[in-house]
Design a protein around this nucleic acid. Structure first.
Lengths: 235, 235
DNA sequence: CGCGGGGTTGAAAGGCCTCAAAACGTGTGG
DNA sequence: CCACACGTTTTGAGGCCTTTCAACCCCGCG
C-alpha cells in the first residue's frame, strides 16, 4: 500500500534533483549515462536488511519505492532509529567506508544501488552532482538536529504528535497531503524512533484517539484534527 | 584556559583540511587567496551570540580558538544543545539561507567569517573545497546520529559518562589526550545537551566522583579511571 | 559586605518504564 | 470454514528514575 511508484517522470532516480538544478546544462545527459552505468535496480522484500551497522560500505543507494528504517544498536540490544527513508531519499555516506547504522526495509522496496567508489569518482568529476548530494546532506543534518530536540526535550505526547505530523509531511510530496498517515512499522519501531517504549506509544495514541484528535486505524492513523495535533506537538 | 591557539601552522583556518587533500595541486595557493579575500577574523567575548536560530544566514564560519554551543529552542523555553564546536570545526550551512540553530560562545573565541554567497560561489568553482566541506558534514551527520542514540536510549549516568569521554576525545587532537576535561559551560548547558536537568547532571557527577571514577574540579573534571568510565557509558 | 550566578543536596511528585495478561488480527492447516 | 498459533497491540498495576521545587552553599565581584 505504501509501495507506489513515485516520480516515474524521471529516467533515473538521482536525476530528479539534477533536473531541477539551475545549471543543468548540456552534459546532463552524460551524467545520466554515467549514473546508469554504475547503478543497478534492486527489489527487496519487507523486513530485509539493506546493509548493517559497522559493515564495510561498498555501495550507496537511493530509495525508489517503499520505505526504510535506519537504526543504531547498543550492545545490550537497546535500539535507536536515527532516520526514516522515503522514496527519492539518498541512503548511505559516499565518503565513509563503514556504515554508521543498519538499514531495514519496512515494506517491499525497490532501491537503486551505486558502487560506492565509482560513485565518489563520478562525484569528484561532476561538481553539480556533488552539490546535489551535499544539499541532501545539509537537509539530513537539519532533520537530525530537529530530532535531537524532540528526543531530548519533548514529552511522550509531543513526541507522538510531532512524529505523526512529520511523517504526513514527508509523504505529502509523493501522495498528496491526506489525513491518513500510513504506519508500516510496529509500535516498537516507533518507540525506538521516539525514545519511548512500545507501551507508551500505544497508550499515547489511544489517548489522542479518545480526545478525537486522531483515529487509530489498521496500519496507520487518521488525523481528525490537524490543528489540535499541532498544538499537542507544541510546534 | 580553553583559549589556546591551535593549528597555527596553517595560514588559513580552512586550509588545515585542504592541505591534507590528496589532489592538492598547483591551484591551492589561489584558493587560499580567494578564501582570504572573502574572510575576516573576528574575536568574541564569552557568552556572545554568533548567530540566532531562524535569522537570515549571511555568513558561514570556522572556529579558530575557543568553543561554541549550538542550540535549538522550543517556544516555551525548553532548549536542546545540538552540537559543541571545537577549534577547526566548520560552522553553518552554506546552502541554507536561514540558521537552524543559535550559536553562542562559551569562552572568548576567535572565528573566521565568510560571506555566505561568496563562499558558496567559491564552493561551486572549487570541487576540492566542496569535497572538504562535504566530508565535514558527513562527519557531523554521524555525530548527530550517535547523539540521537544517546538522547533516546541512554540513562543519565551513561549520558554523563559518554559526554565526558566524547569531550575528551574531541579536544585530544588539539591539546593531547589528558585526564583533565575542561567544562567551560554550566550544568544547565550540559543538561540541555544530554536531555537532562541540571540537578540530574550534578547528582550524576557527584555519584561518579564518590565511586572514584572522576574527580570534580573547578571548571571541569579529572578522569581518574577511564576504563570504568567507559563501562559506565556502556560504549 | 551583600549580591547574584552557579553548584549541590534533599524530599516529594510524576511521567515513563517494567512486567504481566488479555485482546486482536492474520495466516496456516486441518 | 473453523481452529489454532503467532506476532502485535492494548490495557492494567506497580515501581523506578528523573524531574520538580526548595533550601543552602560557594565564590567572585561590585
Amino acid at each position: 500500500m505504501l509501495d507506489l511508484e513515485p516520480r516515474a517522470r524521471s529516467a533515473h532516480p538521482l536525476n530528479i534533483s539534477l533536473e531541477m538544478s539551475p545549471k543543468a546544462g548540456a552534459d546532463e545527459a552524460m551524467v545520466e549515462l554515467d549514473l546508469a552505468d554504475i547503478s543497478r535496480h534492486i527489489r527487496l522484500d519487507a523486513k530485509a536488511t539493506v546493509f548493517t551497522e559497522g559493515a564495510r560500505a561498498d555501495a550507496v543507494w537511493t530509495l525508489v519505492s517503499g520505505s526504510i528504517l535506519l537504526s543504531k544498536l547498543l550492545r545490550d540490544g537497546r535500539r535507536q532509529v536515527v532516520g526514516i527513508v522515503v522514496p527519492g531519499d539518498f541512503l548511505g555516506l559516499p565518503l565513509q567506508s563503514a556504515n554508521g547504522f543498519t538499514a531495514t526495509t519496512l515494506t517491499p522496496s525497490t532501491l537503486c544501488r551505486f558502487d560506492r567508489t565509482r560513485f565518489t569518482d563520478l562525484l569528484n568529476r561532476t561538481p553539480g552532482l556533488m552539490r546535489q548530494v551535499f544539499e541532501t546532506f545539509s537537509h539530513e543534518l537539519a532533520l537530525a538536529q530537529a530530532h535531537m530536540l524532540l528526543l531530548g526535550r519533548r514529552s511522550a505526547e509531543e513526541k507522538v504528535a510531532a512524529f505523526l505530523l512529520s511523517l504526513r509531511d514527508r509523504w505529502a510530496p509523493l501522495q498528496g497531503l491526506t489525513s491518513r498517515v500510513d504506519l508500516p512499522m510496529t509500535r516498537q519501531d516507533i518507540g525506538d524512533y521516539l525514545g519511548l517504549t512500545l507501551e507508551t506509544v500505544s497508550r499515547t495514541m489511544t489517548k489522542l484517539a479518545q480526545r478525537k484528535i486522531i483515529a487509530v486505524i489498521p496500519d496507520g492513523v487518521r488525523i481528525l484534527d490537524a490543528e489540535r495535533l499541532e498544538r499537542a506537538a507544541s510546534l
